[in-house]
Simulated assay, not measured.
Amino acid sequence: KGLQFPIVILPWIENKGSNRRAQALWEMLPEGLAVDIKPWDKPGAKANNLFFKLGSELEAEKDLAEIKRLLYVACTRAEDHLYFFGKRQKQADEKGLSFQYYIEKHLASQSDTPSSGRVDMISLQRRTKDDLRHWYGRQRKPSAGDFALAYAKAKPLVRDIRRRRLSVTDLNTLSKGNPGTQSHPAALSPTTPLPAEKFGELCHEAVEQALEHGPGWSYEPSETLARGLDPDGFARAVILASSMARGFLESEFWQALPETAAIKSEKSFLLAVGNFVVDGRMDLFAETDTDVFVIDFKSDAVRNPEGYRTQLELYRKAASAFAPGKSVSVGLFWLRTSELEWISPSMEEKDLIELAERASRGIGQEYA
């Protein structure tokens, strides 16, 4: 658990799994041990233990729960494509002891409307006895040389397998470079003693700590950020990042936010965009009784709001899904100048789907 792969295949889903013992003589209960034996002093008596029966039912429920957990873990290992292989059984599984039971149950309940959670079933050609004779009826068994020759003649099987799960960064990167870039020389200062990427990580960590602890906090950078950096330059960068984070706490927006607002930093989401799933994380998600505010913190030396328009549009859609019916505002907080810039909606659903299609085609080449 924890590993993920672009393509995951689950074979033999018709197999029934169980941790149950074939001949159970005892069952564990929270209150003690229930034993299923006949009374020694009553010949011909039948074993009839109410507590043992109760324990058996509890164990059966645990078995079903474990099978569901295994199926969940197996399915969530797939990033983009998930394949199930199994065969139809003459006697259907009615107790839910196989993966196939739950997949067929989903097939029976899903609508005809395409969605990212849809399961499509494909019937494969049934093999006959003649096929088996052809495979196993050879007079001469293949040698190592035969395999080597076949391998040398083999050609790679190329398939255009597109990714279905994308990131906000994937889509935003494609849309960067739009006209409308605004460069503000005043925003270039103060200069930073660290590379831009490292300084950005430092600023985000400082803001996250500031949101958690409030104005009286003192920034304590993680050790991993300091590795391989000049100690003096890093110390100056820490002071600068702390000052920028404090600038947000002193901003008009933060001061005016109601105390009853629900604040969440680094709020993760999965968003359906057409037939794709986009994952992302919002720096700040603030929700009041009537409004939702999403803010992305930027430590860029040059202000370019157009370069983040796709990112913010995805944030807007995700926030609307989290809080349906509420007014959603998304904006960029420029840490160097302590300015908050609200971004108005400018992209439609079809624009985001088109970007997802383009991103999928580009990234899908990794698996070709």
Rank of each mutant, 00 (worst) to 15 (best):
I122M: 07
E266N: 11
A318P: 02
A152E: 14
Q209M: 11
V302G: 09
A187T: 06
L166Y: 00
Q255G: 00
P215M: 11
V73C: 02
V273T: 02
E14P: 01
M347C: 06
E223A: 13
A34V: 07
Q89H: 02
T173F: 07
Y219K: 08
F99M: 04
I37F: 11
R165F: 06
S222L: 13
Y83N: 01
R77T: 02
G180T: 08
A245N: 04
S183K: 15
S243G: 14
R227T: 15
E197V: 12
L124V: 04
G362E: 14
D146G: 08
E61M: 11
A256L: 11
T260D: 09
G145R: 09
R163F: 13
A237K: 10
F248P: 04
G331A: 09
R336L: 09
E205Y: 05
L270F: 06
F199R: 05
D296R: 05
K53T: 12
A34I: 07
P345S: 00
S265V: 10
P43Y: 01
A272H: 01
L284N: 03
E313M: 08
D160N: 10
G180A: 01
M121N: 06
A196M: 10
K87G: 09
K264M: 14
D283T: 05
L50W: 10
D351W: 07
Q311N: 11
S189N: 15
D112N: 14
G117V: 04
L211K: 00
K38C: 15
K62W: 12
P345A: 07
C203M: 00
W135G: 02
V302H: 14
V158P: 03
G216R: 11
R140W: 00
V158I: 14
F253T: 00
A45P: 04
L188G: 08
